[in-house]
Amino acid sequence: MKQTFLDGIIKNNMVLVLAIGLCPALAVTTSAYNGIGMGMAVIFVLVFSNLLISLLRNIIPKNLRIPIFIVIISTFVTIVDYTMQAYVPPLSRQLGVFVPLIVVNCGILGRAEGYSYKHPPHYSVMDGLGIGLGFTIILFLMGTIREILGQGVWLSIPGVFPGFQVFGEAFTNSSVILMILPPGGFLAIALLMGLFNHIRMHK
């Protein structure tokens, strides 16, 4: 069970290894806080959809499974969407259309089809936690790189906390704005993926 969890984080990492869930990974990671918020939403959906599908795996008919998976996943996505709109409205506005779009994150449907439809509930929950955490870590790293270079601060939360000053005032006033614009997202993930490949090759 511990292995299932660890595999989810590294060996089956959604973004770096499988290159899935790229849209939210690039779109919302203008700050570390947004990255964590998106990651949490995905963890919730993954864990609960994995649990429910695994509990129902003997009842769901084989040739109807995909539409049923989609309905289950979109139910949990709707729950997350409305909960975030109610309790963290600024975050919900920042993530925008990407919260309801968790439905079409092929990683979640992929886990339903490839893992939880064939494994007992406790393993499926562990798998959901591992995959979700692996995704969150990458989003957090992307957000960290882009926020520090693009704004000079780290872990800022709009309206609550201005963030840690990383390079001092002078940098903040003339930061690399490119990094929080769309090209910066592509650049950050390219370098992160390259670094990951490099570490894997020289291990």
């Binding site: 290159a19 090209p183 910066g184 997202g185 592509f186 650049l187 993930i189 390219a190 370098l191 993926m193 390259g194 670094l195 490949n197 490099h198 090759m201």
Partner: peptide, 13 residues
């Protein structure tokens, strides 16, 4: 290390 996807991301950037 950049072969495949990473270089495509840089292109996209």
């Amino acid at each position: 290390a950049l072969k495949g996807l990473p270089i495509s991301f840089i292109t996209a950037a």
